[in-house]
Amino acid sequence: MIPTLFRIDRRYEEHAGTFTLQLNPPLGSDTTGFRPGQFNMLYAFGAGEVPISISGSPSDKNGLVHTFRTHGLVTLALARLGEGDSIGVRGPFGDGWPLEQIAGKDLLIVAGGLGLAPLRPVIYGVMEGILGQRKATLFYGARRPQEMLYRNEMSSWREKMELELSVDHAVAGWQGRVGVVTGPLAAVEIDVANSVVFLCGPEIMMRFCIRVLEEKGVPLSSIYLSMERNMKCATGHCGHCQWGPNFICKDGPVFCYGSVSRWFNIRAL
């Protein structure tokens, strides 16, 4: 697949080293459709390509939104780009969140750090009232309040869902919890037969959250998580992101924990 040239219409720094880009395709083309949980390969010319999840709303026609953290040469090159600059985009790729599982159930969205980005399209679905969930709760943990993503949107999210925010280190004026995200998750009552959990964050954080969910009796088949590995081709050919029998780029990045728990707990994978 050849990258399509997009223009950066908006760029802002969420916090030090974490950026959000709003991208638009050339005039006349409509290549911004995606399903929540999918990712694009973003190409910084002369530096390379990286997989970045799509963090905007599927119904927003103002372009694709991506949030990323500088982590290597390509993301550093992406961070140096400014509004009006060009960027290559391939995608969208992968299997997204199973939105069809949500109707009539309680939706628990559990995110850590940058893991909120791939879940924000789901939150927009809750805000738009198109998912048919019974009740929605967001559990979001970050190192510090200033490292929480999309803070300016959270007051509007509270109108449609409960928010349980926690940080490792608080500052004066912080109204949420201090402690890890597993705390509020352990404290909440879950209707285990009628809940679905969407989980995204660093793998270690997901592991501890899954442990709490298992202790509470949530069926493994009701837990979905978004995995990341070294994705290169994004089409399941190169094998860089092979994980057990799966290719993260093609079979994921969203998996039902019930079907991948075996691979999730193998240390070498």
């Binding site: 660093p202 270690i204 070294n230």
Partner: peptide
């Protein structure tokens, strides 16, 4: 257990770099 998890800085990305720049 909660303190240990907190000390691990679980929100940081400590996996092999997805973006090697190659």
């Amino acid at each position: 257990r909660a303190t240990r998890i907190q000390l691990m800085d679980i929100y940081g990305q400590r996996r092999p770099p997805m973006d090697s720049g190659q």
